[in-house]
Simulated scan of single mutants.
Amino acid sequence: MSSNLIAAAFAFLSILPAFAQQPRTNAFNDPFGQATSGFPACPVPTGPLLTDDEARREAHWRAERGTSCYRSGRCRLPNAYRYDEEIFPRALQYIRADGRFDDTSIWVTVQRRWVTVQGCVRSAEQGAALEAAVRQIDDVEAVIGQWMVGTSSKPPYESR
């Protein structure tokens, strides 16, 4: 084998991982944004980003979960994801207006009436109070707390 061919093969193999890694996007336009910024060193969550392959795999599951809410009588709208655009701004407004969370850095994602709160709080009690507050918002079915106390440990969520 010639040295040029070997060099070309190694060059191709070195760029192969770049082709294998797909870009991640918010394929389903799930509402995601920052509610508070009182903890500047808090790791920023990646948000609801998926590769094209992950989005294709998740599409059927999302359709099933979205419509089962309506079929069971728990939702007035025919798809649970239709609530998300309404819940998101109310969640941000509620967290910001409450006052107890001004010294936190919190990001919110809403998917099918489930609100995920990610970020940094000052105490476990403050994190629990945040979850309890968000649970009070109309049309919220569940709250998923993925926060950490302080900024020195590894966050319980993917971060940038």
Rank of each mutant, 00 (worst) to 15 (best):
Val108Ser: 04
Glu131Lys: 13
Val108Tyr: 03
Thr104Pro: 02
Phe28Glu: 00
Gln126Arg: 03
Leu77Asp: 01
Asn26Glu: 10
Glu125Cys: 03
Trp107Val: 03
Arg122Asp: 14
Trp61Gln: 15
Leu50Asp: 12
Phe28Gln: 02
Ile106Thr: 10
Asp102His: 07
Glu58Asn: 08
Gln21Ile: 15
Ala20Asp: 06
Pro48Arg: 07
Ile87Asp: 07
Thr25Ala: 06
Ile87Gly: 12
Glu86Ile: 12
Leu50Trp: 00
Leu130Ser: 11
Pro43Glu: 05
Ser2Gly: 15
Asp138Phe: 12
Gln21Pro: 00
Val121Tyr: 02
Pro78Cys: 01
Arg71Val: 08
Glu64Thr: 11
Gln93Ala: 12
Cys75Trp: 02
Phe88Met: 10
Arg24Asp: 07
Ser72Ala: 15
Gly73Glu: 01
Leu77Glu: 02
Gln136Tyr: 05
Ser153Leu: 04
Asp98Ser: 15
Thr104Cys: 14
Leu130Phe: 08
Gly150Gln: 06
Ala132Asn: 14
Cys75Ala: 13
Pro40Met: 04
Ala11Ile: 12
Gln22Thr: 08
Arg135Trp: 11
Asp102Cys: 05
Ser153Tyr: 06
Met1Gly: 14
Gln111Asp: 14
Phe88Ala: 12
Ile95Phe: 12
Arg71Ala: 10
Arg62Val: 10
Arg24Ala: 13
Gly33Leu: 01
Leu13Val: 09
Cys120Trp: 01
Asn4Phe: 15
Ala128Lys: 13
Gln93Phe: 09
Asp30Val: 01
Ala142Phe: 13
Trp147Arg: 06
Trp114Glu: 14
Gln111Ile: 05
Ser37Tyr: 03
Arg90Thr: 11
Arg71Tyr: 14
Glu141Ser: 14
Asn29Ile: 06
Leu92Phe: 12
Arg82Cys: 07
Arg112Ser: 11
Gln118Trp: 07
Lys154Pro: 02
Thr67Asn: 06
Asp30Arg: 02
Tyr157Asp: 00
Met1Ser: 15
Ala59Gln: 14
Thr36Arg: 01
Val110Gly: 03
Gly99Phe: 05
Ala129Asn: 12
Arg96Thr: 12
Thr109Asp: 07
Phe101Trp: 10
Asp30Thr: 08
Arg56Val: 07
Thr116Val: 06
Ala63Pro: 05
Glu141Asn: 12
Asp98Trp: 08
Val44Asn: 07
Arg113Phe: 02
Met148Glu: 03
Glu54Leu: 01
Lys154Met: 15
Gln21Thr: 14
Thr109Phe: 00
Ser2Met: 09
Gly99His: 08
Ala124His: 14
Leu130Cys: 04
Ala97Val: 03
Val140Asp: 13
Arg112Val: 04
Asp84Val: 01
Ala124Gly: 13
Val143Ile: 01
Asp52Trp: 12
Thr51Gly: 04
Cys75Phe: 00
Tyr70Trp: 00
Gly47Leu: 09
Arg71Ser: 11
Pro89Thr: 00
Asp52His: 09
Glu58Arg: 05
Phe12Gln: 11
Ile87Val: 09
Pro31Ile: 04
Ile87Cys: 05
Phe88Val: 04
Asn4Thr: 09
Thr104Phe: 08
Asp84Arg: 00
Asp102Tyr: 07
Pro31Tyr: 03
Trp61Asp: 11
Ile95Trp: 13
Ala132Gly: 09
Thr151Tyr: 11
